[in-house]
Amino acid sequence: MSNKTLNYYNQHAQDFNDSTLNIDMSSLYGEFLPLIEPYGHILDAGCGSARDAIYFKQQGFRVSAFDASEKLASIASRNLNQVVEVSTFQTMNSQNQYDGIWCCASLLHVPKIDLPLAFLNLQNAMTNKGVLYVSFKYGDLEREQNGRIFTDLNEAMLENLIARLVELKIVKQWQSVDQRPDRKTEIWLNALIRKETEN
């Protein structure tokens, strides 16, 4: 995450929490959670308000979470009633730890040049047969909007990224509209990606 984007989230952490905490994400949960073993360990990576981690915890999953923004991680810790780490996709170094990793509107702040490393770290952090959910704003640009830097992806760009990683296979890709009432014109690329090791 760029310093500009990080500064944005630290300066607007409470507003961001208030505007995202109660969005209905049930359609996306319905795609992801059936692929995770019951009571499995899910990482909410770039968790923001921890809205999704809260839901996963309520469903009986073990949950960990991190966010790059210190201010958001502090708010998320209170919301989730457990510690939310301050970390980034580029620095995560877990090995074979998570049955599922949820990256909802978070990888889109990783610079395009760093996405291969981010996906490698995510691959390494998952157990065999683990499932990764990712979402990006639909497009093919790196751009700045409202004080934040975004990396947009389309299906072909995501396929090219995942093709570099021998243990990751795309299960499904689909497009969806933003769930916020004032953002209905924004299109998202969603994907489910499974880790499959040789042994």
Rank of each mutant, 00 (worst) to 15 (best):
K137T: 06
S135C: 10
A163D: 15
R148I: 13
K172M: 03
S135M: 09
G139H: 04
N154V: 10
G139W: 02
D152H: 06
G139A: 04
E142G: 05
L158M: 09
E155Y: 09
L132V: 05
M157A: 14
I170N: 02
N146D: 15
I170C: 03
V166L: 12
V134N: 02
V166T: 13
V171Q: 13
K137I: 06
G130L: 07
K129E: 12
N154K: 11
E144K: 06
L165C: 03
N154W: 05
I162A: 06
V171C: 02
E144N: 13
E167S: 13
N146I: 03
V134E: 04
D140F: 03
S135K: 10
R164E: 15
E144F: 05
G147L: 09
F136G: 00
R148D: 12
D140S: 14
S135A: 12
Q145D: 15
N146F: 11
R164W: 04
R143M: 14
G130S: 08
I162F: 05
R164Q: 15
T151K: 02
V131W: 04
R164V: 11
Y133F: 15
L141C: 10
R164F: 07
K137G: 08
N154Q: 11
K169E: 14
L153I: 04
Y133H: 06
E167I: 00
N146S: 15
S135V: 09
S135R: 09
L132W: 07
Y133W: 04
K172L: 08
Q145F: 10
V171D: 10
G130V: 01
G147I: 08
Y133V: 00
L161D: 03
A156T: 14
D152K: 08
R143I: 12
A163L: 13
I162C: 07
L141D: 13
N146Q: 15
V171H: 10
Y133K: 00
M157S: 14
K137C: 08
L158W: 12
L168R: 00
G147D: 09
L132I: 05
R143S: 12
Q145C: 09
D152Y: 05
F150E: 03
V134M: 07
N160D: 15
E142P: 02
E167K: 13
G130F: 11
K169W: 03
L161E: 13
M157R: 10
R143N: 09
G147S: 07
I170G: 01
N160G: 15
L161N: 04
K137L: 06
D152V: 05
T151P: 08
G147Y: 11
N146V: 06
I149Y: 13
Y138K: 08
E144V: 11
L165R: 00
D140C: 07
I149P: 00
L165Y: 01
T151Q: 06
K137M: 02
L161K: 03
G139F: 02
Y138N: 06
L165A: 05
N160V: 04
K172F: 04
V134F: 10
E155N: 12
K137P: 07
V166I: 12
D152F: 07
Q145M: 12
N154T: 10
G139Q: 02
F136P: 01
R143A: 11
I149R: 04
